[in-house]
């Protein structure tokens, strides 16, 4: 119960911190918009290539700009002394991990929601039914959990390295490929108005579970000896 309260507290303060200048969400969002723009020059989105390219486009945009949000989880102005304060507070590392995952997840989801909306407007994507949209939302949420759960651990790892922003992406993106492949596949189905297959959900779900469990343990390992982290 106490852990739940500190969990909620940490998320609340992360939001307050973000609300000061919205810099994480805004930079993710702007970057996503720019990516969508650049895509239109790289490939003709209205051509016959169809939904497959669109599903890939949207997930690539999520991946590239979501990485910014994950990067900001432990980096930025004064982030290190804030982290020190949290580590000294009576909050367990596991709670801290889940709080960080949740707040980063929320930031990324806000970005994804707006990006998806803009994407649908710009590229004339229409969902056939509410169920199709629902399936799309399910797959986006599941995919983002996987993305963020491993991302937060890696972000805690690369936070003190000079040039760690790039390293984070180098480490994160290859790990993301399974969830990316499954999510693109599922998004294709959702955009075409088909039911999701078991395989897609199983793979993304398994990825989420494995990385939430592993991330929780390994996050503790990373921060248990602060000086060495």
């Amino acid at each position: 119960m106490k852990a739940l309260r500190s969990y909620a507290r940490l998320i609340y303060w992360d939001w307050v911190r973000e609300a000061k200048r919205l810099d994480t969400i805004l930079s993710m969002l702007l970057f996503a918009m720019i990516t969508l723009m650049i895509f239109s020059f790289a490939i003709d989105p209205m051509s016959e290539t169809g939904v497959r390219v669109r599903a890939g486009m949207i997930w690539l945009t999520f991946l590239l700009s979501g990485a910014i949000g994950i990067d900001r989880a432990f980096r930025g102005d004064g982030a290190e002394s804030v982290l020190q304060g949290i580590l000294l507070a009576p909050v367990s590392r596991v709670t801290l991990y889940y709080a960080k995952v949740t707040s980063t997840f929320l930031f990324v989801v806000v970005m994804e929601a707006i990006t998806l909306f803009v994407f649908c407007l710009l590229y004339d994507v229409e969902f056939e039914s509410a169920a199709a949209l629902g399936r799309m939302i399910v797959i986006i949420l599941l995919g983002t959990i996987g993305f963020v759960s491993v991302g937060v651990t890696l972000s805690a790892m690369t936070r003190t390295i000079k040039g760690g922003e790039v390293l984070l992406r180098i480490l994160l993106f290859p790990l993301m490929i399974p969830v990316f492949a499954a999510a693109v596949d599922a998004t294709k189905f959702a955009l075409a108005g088909d039911e999701l297959t078991m395989k897609q959900l199983v793979l993304v779900g398994a990825f989420d579970l494995v990385y939430l469990a592993a991330g929780q343990i390994l996050f503790e390992v990373i921060l248990s000896d602060y000086d060495a982290s």
Partner: peptide, 30 residues
């Protein structure tokens, strides 16, 4: 950790918080 208070060279709150907000944050966290 609930019984120990460590003073390091910097305060633990986010730099954009005002002092009052920072203290509110700090007391809530602890």
């Amino acid at each position: 950790r609930a019984r120990v208070s460590l003073l390091l060279d910097r305060p633990f709150f986010p730099p954009r918080f005002s002092l009052e907000e920072g203290l509110r944050y700090f007391t809530d966290l602890y």
